[in-house]
C-alpha cells in the first residue's frame, strides 16, 4: 500500500469522515430519525451499497474485523467486492464468521447468529424513507415525521388486509423505533425484524443515493407495525434447510432443474457452513455423503 499512497486510510478524506461521524452521533441520539448527510461519489455505482460503505469507512479502524454479507451470503459479488475494497484501502482484517466480526456490513439480511455487544451492524439502504411510496414529496414526509403523523402507513397495511386478508408486506416491513419514529429497516425480510428489537449490537443505516444516515442504538425498542386483530408475524418455512437441517432460519429457494425441482437452503451462508462443520446435515446433503462413504 505504501507505494500506492494515493488514498487516505479507508478511502474517504478526513473532512468527509468528520461530516459523516457527526451525522452518526446525531443519528444515535435520535433513534430512527434520518439525518441528512453530504453523500460522496464512491468508486462504485449508487445501488451497490455506497451508503453502507461510507458509514463503514467512517467508523472502521485498523483493529477492526470486517464481515460483509449480501442477502446473507459472504460470497456474492457485492459482498466480495466491498470486502476487497476495505482490505485494499484500510488493510483491515476480514472474516466470514459472524462471531469474529466487529463490523458487519449487510445488504438485506441480519445474520442468524445473535449479535453481541460491541458489534456494529451497518445496513446498505436503497430507500430510507418508509413513507416514500405513499407520499413522494420530501417536504411532506419530513412534516409527517415531525408531527408523528403515521396514519397513512397504517392505512397502507390495512389495505393489504382488505385486499389479501393479511398484511402482505414481506420485506422492508415498517418498524417504530423507541416509540417515536417509523423507520424502514432496509429491504430485509420481515423475518429479521424481531432481531432488531433490543439487539445488543449498534445498528447503523447508510443510504448513499438518498443521502441519509440513521441508527438504532443497542437495547432499543424496535416494534413492527401491526393491528391487534392482525398481529405482526414472520415468515415460516415448511421444511428445514436442505443442506444443514436448520429450523427457524430464513431460507432461499434454489431451482435445481427445469422440471420443477427445487431446494430451500439457509440464506446465511456462514450459519449454514458452521452447522455443516458441526455435523448437521439436511436432506439434500445426507444421501450424497452416504454415497461417498
Amino acid at each position: 500500500m505504501s507505494e500506492l499512497a494515493a488514498y487516505n486510510f479507508a478511502y474517504l478524506d478526513e473532512q468527509t469522515k468528520r461530516m459523516i461521524r457527526r451525522a452518526i452521533l446525531k443519528a444515535i441520539a435520535i433513534p430512527g430519525y434520518q439525518v441528512p448527510f453530504a453523500s460522496r461519489e464512491m468508486p462504485m455505482p449508487y445501488g451497490w451499497g455506497t451508503g453502507g460503505v461510507q458509514v463503514t469507512a467512517s467508523i472502521i479502524g485498523p483493529d477492526d474485523v470486517l464481515k460483509v454479507i449480501d442477502q446473507g451470503a459472504d460470497d456474492t459479488t457485492n459482498a466480495v467486492s466491498i470486502r476487497a475494497f476495505f482490505q485494499k484501502v484500510a488493510e483491515v482484517a476480514v472474516t466470514t464468521h459472524t462471531g469474529e466480526a466487529t463490523i458487519i456490513q449487510t445488504r438485506h439480511r441480519i445474520p442468524e447468529e445473535t449479535l453481541k455487544e460491541g458489534q456494529v451492524l451497518v445496513y446498505q439502504v436503497p430507500i430510507p424513507e418508509p413513507l416514500r411510496f405513499l407520499e413522494p414529496r420530501e417536504t411532506e414526509t419530513r412534516k409527517m415525521h415531525a408531527l408523528e403523523e403515521y396514519g397513512l402507513m397504517h392505512v397502507k397495511l390495512y389495505e393489504d388486509i382488505a385486499r389479501h386478508g393479511r398484511i402482505a408486506t414481506t420485506y422492508a416491513y415498517p418498524v417504530k423505533v423507541h416509540g417515536r419514529y417509523v423507520m424502514d429497516p432496509s429491504p430485509t425480510p420481515k423475518f429479521d425484524n424481531p432481531k432488531m428489537h433490543r439487539s445488543e449490537a449498534l445498528q447503523l443505516f447508510g443510504a448513499g443515493r438518498e443521502k441519509r444516515i440513521y441508527a438504532v442504538p443497542p437495547h432499543t425498542d424496535v416494534v413492527s407495525l401491526d393491528f391487534e386483530d392482525h398481529p405482526f408475524e414472520i415468515q415460516t418455512f415448511d421444511k428445514p434447510c436442505a443442506l444443514c437441517g436448520a429450523n427457524h432460519v430464513y431460507l432461499d429457494e434454489i431451482v435445481l432443474d427445469d422440471g420443477g425441482k427445487r431446494m430451500f437452503v439457509c440464506s446465511d451462508t456462514d450459519f449454514c457452513e458452521t452447522r455443516r462443520a458441526e455435523g448437521h446435515t439436511g436432506e439434500m446433503l445426507a444421501p450424497s455423503q452416504e454415497a461417498a462413504e
Binding site: 444515535i28 460491541g118 449498534l202
Partner: peptide, 19 residues
C-alpha cells in the same frame, strides 16, 4: 497521527453515545 487518532477517538465517542 490525525487519521488513526481521530478514528480511535470517534469510536470511543460513538460507543459512549450508543451506550
Amino acid at each position: 497521527n490525525p487519521v488513526l487518532d481521530s478514528q480511535n477517538v470517534f469510536r470511543t465517542v460513538m460507543n459512549c453515545m450508543a451506550q
